[in-house]
Design a protein around this nucleic acid. Sequence first.
DNA 1: TCTAAGCGTGTACAAAACAG
DNA 2: CTGTTTTGTACACGCTTAGA
Length: 433
Amino acid sequence: MERKEAEARAAWLRSELERHNYLYYVKDSPEITDAEYDALFRELQTIEAEYPDLVTPDSPTQRVGARPAEEFKHIRHRVPMLSLQNAMDEGELREFDARVCRLLETRDPIEYVCEPKFDGLSAELVYEDGVLLAASTRGDGFVGEDITANVKTIRSVPLRLRTGDGQAMPRLLEVRGEILMPIAAFDELNREREARGEPVFANPRNAAAGSARQLDPGVTAVRPLQFYAYALGVSEGFSVECQADLLRALRAFGFRVSDLFTVARGADEVMRAYRELGARRDSLPFEIDGMVVKVNSFALQRELGEVSRSPRWAIAFKFPPEQQVTRVEDIIVNVGRTGVLTPVACLRPVRVAGVMVKRATLHNEDEVARKGVMIGDHVLVQRAGDVIPEVVLVLKERRTGEERPFVMPSTCPACGGPVSRREGEVAWRCTSV
DNA sequence: TCTAAGCGTGTACAAAACAG
DNA sequence: CTGTTTTGTACACGCTTAGA
């Protein structure tokens, strides 16, 4: 094949493959069979093998192109990736709404966008002139890990932004969203791993986080990850005026965007959206742990600004935590790096919200001291956050006999040194650490 | 009231220790 | 000398506490 001819053919194949990829992985409505796709893919591979200089970074053949890395490099976020404040119940949601109204000095109902709060790991994808150049984890909000090679293997991530209906290609677009693993794919993956005798993942969130942080992108490539876009970092040559328009624009750029988002006016409508999302929660293809409520207008968002590491214009409205009752088998004492002693309850393993809970910290000494926890007690365990189970309540039953009340030891279990607790101090400390 | 530090759980991965 | 298990480190996440 002539070089010029090959160049044109390769360009056509790339756009065609990316279009079919989009139809299959984002729209869930393929136009061609897998075999036809493979044939196109192999043709492109053949051309690129003959003319290596024709390979572009956004070529579909480059999704799993990178070699295993030694370590993750770090990427600084140009705009910090903030975390959200939580609202645990209706009262806290209404407080949030009241604060927004007060700060904006308005009595009119505020327009909010309600979106599912995906249970995965958040990431930032950087597109320059429409081409995916870098992807990073949230990290501490300022600096994240470079997971570009891994993100490129996620088939619902566009390697090149789609444009159309008058939208020009942005010079720069930093797209933020969530990497997650759908429940059905997670179950299937664990079945395979179990059959091969490999350890199974605890839940889809951890499976997604683990998969995204593989040093070898080849491993990530065979993990069924998806990316849902929902926010922006820096952008040049692109602007919208509100969150709802942004979500629609992200969809037009070729990203998966959940169709579960709604626009609500005022706290009452937000509460309705919350109840509706909660009712649908168990039938969704992926796990969510709440609903994110954002002030729709970007102008109002700017006016509200941010405090600390979270914006004043958004809140994570959590679903009530799942609870289970289990038994305290033992209480041990953990010695921290700085000598802090923390009693930890060893529990009869119980499954709560996708994780097996075996241990729970008893660091909340007020609670523990007031009510006491004994070996043999039955305790209520709830999944407090994404990962951390917490013992919140005590005493469903107290058996007599061999149980002993828990008392902090007078010597450090790690080094045998003395243990003390200064006046007014909450924590017990090993004084020799 | 806000911020930073400390802490615990759970994940992945690499090095070290162990066994055949 | 291999392959497997154990141990240690780093990271993500979210909570509590202490200090500003």
